[in-house]
Structures are given as structure tokens and as C-alpha cells.
């Protein structure tokens, strides 16, 4: 299987279209015949990364890369960045506004869900420059599809 790469733009505050990127990611993986348990993990992680861009950033991109051994989701946004990444990793911690919380977001489970669904998670962020998240899930023999 050759390396495959897709790039999706994600807009801030677009709650109607939010989730469409994760749906596209899922469809691509399904068409490639990737194992369903891997698809589920990537779908959840991609959704959380996408929602983080919609809720917390001024916009960004989700990149899907499929290589023979790894599926990688990269989320890049244009800011404002996370002040304390370690704190943001804690389940239940959220900086979401009341309006967003009323919609059922902001449970403080975004990054913890990404961690749970990945083999490796890298988060780099600083205030003013934006957040860069890499989620990797390993593909073992038999999970790779065609």
C-alpha cells in the first residue's frame, strides 16, 4: 500500500458541519478495508481533534496520512493555543464557554479520548501560536486492508 494523504479545512464555530471531516476520514478508511476496531479508534480521535478546532481555535486543518504501518491524524490550528497542556490532558478539565457546554461539548474529555484511542499522542501548543496534535495508531498485519 502506498502512502496516502488527505487535508481537510476545519472552520471555527461551524457546529452544523462539525463532524464532517471525521466522517470523511472514516469513509476513506472503510473504503481501504482497514480493520473496523482501528476505524473506530481513528474516528473517535479525529472527531475530538476536529471538535477542538471548531470549539477552541480560530480555524485549522486536519490531515489524514495512511502508511503501511501507521495511520496518522494531524490537527493544526491557528491559535490561540493551550496555556497548560498538562492540565488540558486531565479528564474533566475544559475551558469551553457556557454556550458550548449547553450543547454537550466541553466535558473535558477531548484530549483524554484522543489518548485512549491512539498508540501515540503528541500535543504541542503555546499561547499565540496555536496547537499541533499528532495522533498515531499502529496497523498490524491483517488490519491494513488492501
Amino acid at each position: 500500500m502506498e502512502d496516502i494523504k488527505y487535508v481537510f479545512d476545519v472552520k471555527k464555530d461551524d457546529f452544523v458541519r462539525a463532524g464532517e471531516t471525521s466522517s470523511k476520514v472514516k469513509k476513506i478508511l472503510r473504503e481501504l478495508g482497514i480493520d473496523s476496531s482501528i476505524i473506530r479508534k481513528i474516528s473517535i480521535a479525529a472527531y475530538e481533534a476536529e471538535m477542538n478546532i471548531v470549539i477552541h481555535s480560530t480555524g485549522g486543518q486536519i490531515v489524514l496520512e495512511i502508511t503501511p504501518g501507521v495511520i496518522r491524524i494531524t490537527a493544526n490550528d491557528r491559535g490561540p493555543g493551550i496555556a497548560d497542556v498538562e492540565l488540558a490532558m486531565k479528564e474533566g478539565y475544559s475551558t469551553a464557554t457556557d454556550r458550548v457546554r449547553e450543547m454537550g461539548f466541553g466535558a473535558g474529555m477531548g484530549l483524554p479520548n484522543m489518548k485512549r484511542c491512539s498508540d501515540r499522542l503528541y500535543v504541542t501548543s503555546s499561547e499565540g501560536t496555536g496547537t499541533h496534535i499528532v495522533i498515531e495508531v499502529d496497523l498490524k498485519a491483517g488490519e491494513q486492508g488492501e
Binding site: 463532524g19 472527531y47 471538535m51 450543547m103 466535558a107 474529555m109 479520548n113 485512549r116
Partner: peptide, 28 residues
């Protein structure tokens, strides 16, 4: 009604009962 909680714990084939009614519930 917390979407990330549902993402973490709901299973394939579940009937999901929620008072959230915005479009994102369909994505979940």
C-alpha cells in the same frame, strides 16, 4: 448528553437517548 462522554462509552448499535438536538448529534 455529553458528546465526548458518548464518544468514549457508547457502543455500536446502541439506541442513544439524549436531549441534545443540534446537528452534531448525527455526526456522533
Amino acid at each position: 448528553d455529553l458528546l465526548s462522554w458518548v464518544m468514549a462509552h457508547a457502543g455500536k448499535g446502541d439506541a442513544w437517548i439524549t436531549v441534545q438536538t443540534h446537528a452534531n448529534i448525527v455526526a456522533v
